[in-house]
Design a protein around this nucleic acid. Structure first.
Lengths: 98, 98
DNA sequence: AAAACTACTTACCAATTGGAAACTAGTTTC
DNA sequence: GAAACTAGTTTCCAATTGGTAAGTAGTTTT
């Protein structure tokens, strides 16, 4: 669970799972509210835990691509379940007591 | 995700899911390393989110029983998946790089 | 050569989290 | 009446988390 700790890791992983290869700036723009420092740090954590790969691409201005590893994809059911659960049962918080 | 935040909630929920009704002291003894303050606070959080119920039983020394709600049980697949994932892929951390 | 874009990193700071230890409070056994 | 068991609560403190803002460094457009 520590590998998914923090405010952003699940969100980053979810975004990368649906978007495939993405650059740093893509993620920064896609994930609403995250700061560069946080994105950088969280990506380092995810990379250390072998959930994403980091690839430097020698384009005009250098770009860096992030992608979920096969290992990272084994987390997809967990992330999907959490997302489903969140969407489905959120109602209980406001209104529908049952 | 915030409803499962913190170091102990998943552990508490897992313990309660396998143990059924449990008293405060049962949980304190069962969950290795948790302090009374943490258990108390986490249980309050879980109760607020309607994942567990708290029932005072009028025994010789008063006891309090905690139990996972039906709602809380909808989290069982998530908790199981996380537990499975943890047990199954833990190997990558030490040794087996692949 | 200045401005802008790439991807970060660093410094600083506030809020939250988590832990140890002691304390409360009611009942019951010794 | 002291000790022990129940279920907590309180205090105090250290570590972690997360945020803003600014700085770094290389390339490229203007």
């Amino acid at each position: 669970m520590q590998v998914l700790s923090g405010k952003w890791k699940i969100h980053i992983l979810g975004t990368l799972l649906q978007g495939g290869k993405m650059r740093f700036m893509d993620l920064l723009r896609e994930i609403d509210g995250i700061a560069a420092k946080m994105l950088s740090k969280e990506l380092q954590d995810l990379e250390m835990n072998q959930l994403v790969t980091r690839t430097v691409v020698d384009t005009k201005p250098i770009t860096v691509e992030y992608e979920v590893t096969e290992y990272g994809k084994t987390m997809e059911p967990i992330i999907d379940e959490i997302a489903n659960w969140g969407v489905f049962y959120r109602n209980r918080l406001h209104g529908k007591t049952d």
